[in-house]
């Protein structure tokens, strides 16, 4: 990150580590009107990797709240579907150990 301005470095910060999505990408999409976690999931796959949003949902909701002027408790947080952590397809297919 040498040679970048501080603002550029902030934008380059990886927020969703599972899907490698940066802060500036998230801010871009929020700027285009995608101001719910569900919409951002659909366009960027944030909250859809191995950690299912444990690392990034909170930060993304704060970004939405700030950028769109929505109080944090009103920001749509997206559905949390099973499984909460990766399960090998083989296990699901075979049904047992």
């Amino acid at each position: 990150m040498t040679g970048m301005t501080y603002e550029e470095k902030v934008g380059n910060t990886v927020i969703c580590r599972c899907e490698e999505v940066t802060l500036s990408e998230i801010r871009d999409w929020i700027g285009r009107g995608y101001d719910t976690v569900t919409e951002l999931k659909h366009v960027m796959r944030v909250c859809m990797g191995p950690c299912q949003g444990r690392g990034c949902r909170d930060i993304i909701m704060r970004e939405i709240s700030q950028a769109a002027g929505i109080p944090l408790d009103r920001v749509e947080a997206g559905a949390v579907r099973p499984p909460v952590k990766p399960v090998k397809t083989r296990l699901l297919a075979s049904g047992d150990d």
Binding site: M1, Y6, K9, V10, T13, V14, D58, I59
Partner: peptide, 10 residues
């Protein structure tokens, strides 16, 4: 745990 974003936090 909560994380906070800052450059090079990875």
């Amino acid at each position: 745990e909560r994380l906070i974003p800052f450059p090079n936090n990875d």
